[in-house]
Nucleic acid binder design. Sequence first.
DNA 1: CGCAGAATTGATACATCTCAAGCTGGGTGG
DNA 2: CCACCCAGCTTGAGATGTATCAATTCTGCG
Lengths: 248, 248
Amino acid sequence: MFADHISQMPQECGNCPIRHTAVCARCNPDELEQLDRIKYNRSFQAGQTVIWSGDRMDFVGSVVSGIATLTQTMEDGRTQMVGLLLPSDFVGRPGRNEAAYNVIATSDLVMCCFRKRPFEQIIRDTPRISQRLLEMTLDELDAAREWMLVLGRKTAREKIASLLAIIARRSALADRAGPDGRTVFDLPLTREAMADYLGLTLETVSRQISALKRDGVISLHGKRHVTVPDFARLLNEAGDDVQTLMIQ
Amino acid sequence: MFADHISQMPQECGNCPIRHTAVCARCNPDELEQLDRIKYNRSFQAGQTVIWSGDRMDFVGSVVSGIATLTQTMEDGRTQMVGLLLPSDFVGRPGRNEAAYNVIATSDLVMCCFRKRPFEQIIRDTPRISQRLLEMTLDELDAAREWMLVLGRKTAREKIASLLAIIARRSALADRAGPDGRTVFDLPLTREAMADYLGLTLETVSRQISALKRDGVISLHGKRHVTVPDFARLLNEAGDDVQTLMIQ
DNA sequence: CGCAGAATTGATACATCTCAAGCTGGGTGG
DNA sequence: CCACCCAGCTTGAGATGTATCAATTCTGCG
């Protein structure tokens, strides 16, 4: 097969694309230097598994570029995605030795990894890092709770609309071009991955995307490139309170 | 109606039931003294709302005794529970001014509240507190992700079995009496609250509890007192990997 | 060109919801 | 002290949304 992973020389933090958004966002030069000493880059190809649930994990790290998913699996194969990792998102848990979830590269992926033991020591000594990690973890918890509402109470159509809205908002590619407020972005997930995100089957995902297209809520160019002519309408289809959400 | 809330004199931290499990768990006497200066107790009656989503929130705090729920609501009234708060659980988010969820007392409830501004200053200055908060937040995130698997991929019967197992494990009342390994505990939730936890209707909850009873997985004494003759069987009904989970 | 993975579409099955009717047990007031 | 009340719960019958099983149809790529 392919090389299990492809090590790369550490990059300069100075021109790192996630320098001001990742766990190191608020580090001063001295703290950055400390992290630099224990870091290394790893690259993965689309489809590769970064780590299996239950495996020993001797690093934590940040997604530098690309997309990965966090999934849980039941014995009979039912799969639920529990995290969607975009650049600057943090992977792994300080103080835990084994991975709790499968981490899979959905696209080609670059990660900035820190050796776990020294990283644990650094967060003990460096409040600016542990507080940034707390902030990021609280954000993830909020996102997880929003996701729980989607999983527990929304219809298939609302789920798809919610996912599209979430991806549009998180995706750096998304921008409202022109005064008409169209939103354009690429879907980073297959239909099956979307199904695992939303607790649906891939057939239901496909049908609901077709329905949203038929109803003019979205239009597709290819399978992955999405245009949303009216973002408020999409939020409305998601069952969200449009007033509250458009403000941000 | 009732008094909106009933203030009480702060209790001594020394004999506080959550002294060694809450956010203050690892404080030294000096740090405890700092927290003591900004804390106050509040009591709520069963059914009372602690705070509404969107309301200004000028405190954070810990559940001292009793049970509360965190819920999200859609405009049409659909409700999803996103947190179940037991003694020592933390409520509120440092750095946020408005509540993101409804917090409702399910039983009579006592909270140890900290004024938000000074608390935010203290966690900036006191690594032992912010690191304990990070640890608790990571635990909550893990619980939320487990819950997402339940919501997204489990059947109604598995959902009920999962909830019973979760409550049994978290409940202080639960104990394996005798060598036969029976587990006994009280349900702290109505059928409707269980439905909101699991993304079901209360009728489905009722039917599935009846089915588990009929099949001998559980027995009920009254509506709330549960006996589990064989905990491994309950975990099996929950769709969980029994090998992994019984070890803890 | 033709293959393989990804996606779409159709027909049917079934789990859960919805609507509706009773039941139960603990508290209250006559 | 008993009857009644009512929130919480159970059970039933039928409706419905999503899953399942099964063909096709795309699409990108060697």
